[in-house]
């Protein structure tokens, strides 16, 4: 387990360093994920000891958002002020994104099937 955790944390560390050294606007964790993806593409498989730890982390991924999400408790005034507008924006924007993506992909696939 330590081996897998060390490898994954090493990718995270490399991503964080790269983000700062190259002054990229992309978060270090995302760069770490990209580096890890590149490593698997090069190897053409997932190292089993790393896969075990990765699967363990992903299994409880939702739990890991909870401590930050509870921070909502400090946003009372902002929610009271903007809450209704937030819900409207969330619903409309998500519906538009979903509809446009689905219709675009369906149109492209049908066009290709015909052509």
């Amino acid at each position: 387990m330590l081996y897998g955790l060390t490898v994954i944390c090493a990718f995270l560390l490399a991503g964080e360093l790269l983000s700062r050294l190259a002054a990229l606007p992309v978060p270090g964790a995302v760069l770490g994920m990209l580096l890890f993806t590149g490593w698997m593409l090069l190897r053409k498989d997932i190292e089993p000891r790393v896969a075990r730890v990765g699967a363990g982390l992903l299994r409880y991924l939702p739990l890991l958002f909870v401590p930050a999400g509870v921070g909502l408790v400090e946003l009372g005034p902002r929610l009271a002020h903007e809450g209704v507008a937030m819900i409207v924006v969330l619903v409309l924007s998500t519906a538009i994104t979903l509809g446009v993506t689905a219709l675009t992909l369906q149109w492209l696939l049908r066009r290709r099937a015909r052509g």
Binding site: C9, A29, G32, M33, G54, L57, L58, Y60, A68
Partner: peptide, 16 residues
């Protein structure tokens, strides 16, 4: 718990 969010984000590379 929050500290594990970083490594878990990196692990998202696996299903991808």
């Amino acid at each position: 718990i929050h500290l594990l969010l970083g490594p878990a984000t990196v692990a998202l590379a696996m299903p991808l």
